[in-house]
Nucleic acid binder design. Structure first.
Length: 199
DNA sequence: GCCAGGATCGTCT
DNA sequence: GACGATCCTGGCG
């Protein structure tokens, strides 16, 4: 694939394609980097998408041009990082849920306060802390500093990506819009919890 | 190992 | 005034 970073056209496609193709890409920011191993897609007609209720000051970045970062505060504690997708006017985004750490490991350890590598970026709230990504980056372009997102060295075709239901939401939770690098041990959870007893 | 509960605050009703 | 696209801790088996 191309050697350079991803450009805006990459993001101006179906959010599901973008979510799938981000798997295997390397995300670098603020002196640390990792390979994206888990994402989730949220599209405009999706009740779980923040844009579903219409345009508000909080979610306006979702309605803007693709290739920007949508960062918001979750549970009053965690910053969650999304990549805005689809052409401008189509409010959709990909939640980055987990990374396999590759560079700046020590810096991530300091920011996270934990030593175990598998605990540095194995969750949407964890990876933003490890990368030093906060609300100040909401609306920033993912195609420019301080972000750099580059495609995998190997062709996308050679990466095995599995899909499953999304995690941590109550609305439209049954939609299979979670994408994971198959067999990767740095995902937030190997597989969604299966309900052991039927209601 | 698994699960229940609490932390904490911006956003919307 | 209620509710999260989460994470961590503590209790129990």
């Amino acid at each position: 694939m191309s050697a350079g970073p991803l450009d805006t056209d990459f993001y101006a496609r179906s959010v599901h394609e973008v979510a799938r193709d981000l798997i295997g890409c390397t995300l670098a920011v603020n002196g640390a980097a990792g390979v994206i191993v888990e994402t989730e897609a949220y599209d405009a007609g999706d009740p779980a998408c923040h844009a579903y209720v219409g345009r508000t000051p909080r979610n306006e970045v979702l309605f803007g041009p693709p290739g920007r970062a949508y960062v918001y505060l979750s549970y009053g504690i965690h910053s969650l990082l999304n990549a805005v997708a689809e052409p401008e006017g189509q409010a959709a985004a990909v939640l980055i849920r987990a990374l396999e750490p590759t560079e700046g490991i020590e810096l991530m350890r300091e920011r996270r306060g934990v030593g175990e590598i598998s605990q540095l970026c194995s969750g949407p709230g964890k990876l933003t802390q490890a990368l030093g990504v906060g609300l100040d980056l909401n609306g920033a372009e993912l195609t420019a500093e301080p972000f750099e997102i580059v495609p995998p060295a190997e062709a996308w075709d050679r990466l095995e990506v599995v899909t499953s239901t999304r995690i941590g939401i109550t609305k439209a939770a049954e939609l299979p819009w979670r994408y994971c690098a198959s067999g990767n041990r740095f995902v937030s959870r190997p597989w969604p919890r299966v309900r052991s007893r039927a209601a």
